[in-house]
């Protein structure tokens, strides 16, 4: 398969999944989408190498996460611009439950939020979450347990069958 064709196929297949993960991590849909675009642009720069990786999506996801957290540092500038120019035009909003979930995710410690997003939204097994975040599997399990419990409290939902992970 040609380089261009394989990249385009990879991009179309994984961009929504990565967008959702970044959106859940950052709480900012616009920032998440731009971070995903930027990460894929960087992937294209190195596509000869990355296409041979066992999991190219893991590379893009990690890069996108770094981009997103780095840009978070510049939020002050955006707030300044917001005050100067007024809010952006209204967009069709997500559902009420999605908004509630995003708000709840934003209140989790970043380590718990990352574990929940990678495991429950990106479908990574615990072992892969551990590898991607550089911590032991037991730590990931603890973060998932605490993260889910905190989300349940924040969202007022019952986790009576909470034996997951």
């Amino acid at each position: 398969m040609a380089d261009t064709e394989s990249f385009d196929e990879f991009y179309r297949a994984s961009r929504q999944r990565l967008f959702v993960a970044l959106c859940a991590l950052t709480g900012d849909a616009g920032e998440a989408q731009d971070a995903v675009h930027e990460a894929f642009a960087r992937a294209w720069q190195r596509w000869d190498s990355i296409r041979g990786y066992g999991d190219p999506e893991a590379w893009v996801r990690t890069v996108a996460r770094r981009i997103a957290v780095s840009r978070w540092r510049r939020a002050r500038n955006r707030l300044t611009a917001h005050r100067r120019h007024g809010p952006p035009p209204a967009l069709p909003g997500p559902s009420a439950s999605s908004v509630a979930l995003r708000v709840a995710l934003a209140r989790l410690p970043v380590e718990q939020r990352t574990a929940v997003v990678l495991h429950h939204l990106c479908d990574l097994p615990v072992s892969e979450v551990a590898r991607e975040t550089g911590v032991p599997e037991g730590t990931v399990k603890a973060r998932l347990f605490r993260g889910r419990r905190a989300l349940a409290e924040l969202l007022n939902v019952d986790l009576s069958e909470d034996s997951h992970v």
């Binding site: 929504q16 967009l91 997500p94 999605s98 979930l101 939204l121 969202l155 069958e161």
Partner: peptide, 18 residues
């Protein structure tokens, strides 16, 4: 996992990009 939290996470997967 099949609880309300799981359903909310599932719905989030289809969140439209801006």
């Amino acid at each position: 996992m099949s609880d309300p939290l799981h359903e909310m996470l599932r719905e989030l997967r289809n969140a439209p990009a801006p």
